[in-house]
Amino acid sequence: MCEMLEVAKSSYYEWLSNPISKRFSRYRQLDILIESIFIEHQERYGSTRIYHELKYRGIACTRKIVAKRMKLI
Rank of each mutant, 00 (worst) to 15 (best):
K64P: 00
S11K: 11
T62W: 09
R26V: 07
L72M: 12
K71N: 13
S17M: 04
Y27R: 05
I32S: 04
S11T: 06
S17V: 04
C2F: 10
V7Q: 14
V7C: 15
H52S: 07
K9P: 11
E40A: 09
E40Y: 00
I59W: 05
I39P: 03
R49P: 02
I73S: 13
D31L: 12
R28A: 02
N18R: 06
I59Y: 10
K68M: 11
I32W: 09
I39E: 12
E3M: 14
R26G: 06
R23V: 05
M70R: 06
I32M: 09
N18S: 07
Y56T: 01
C61F: 06
A8I: 06
E6Q: 15
I20F: 02
P19H: 05
Q42R: 10
E6D: 13
T48H: 14
Q29K: 13
D31Q: 14
E53T: 06
L54K: 03
S10F: 07
D31F: 09
E3N: 14
L5Q: 15
V7S: 11
L33D: 07
S17H: 02
R44Y: 12
A8Y: 03
K9S: 13
C2G: 14
E43K: 10
V7F: 09
K9G: 02
M70A: 02
I50Y: 00
E3A: 15
L30T: 04
A60W: 02
K64Y: 05
H52G: 00
S36N: 12
W15P: 07
S10T: 03
R69K: 06
F24L: 08
Y13W: 06
Y12N: 13
L16K: 04
S11R: 06
A67K: 14
V66D: 09
C2H: 14
L5F: 15
E3C: 13
I50N: 05
K9E: 10
I73E: 15
R69F: 07
S11I: 02
H52C: 11
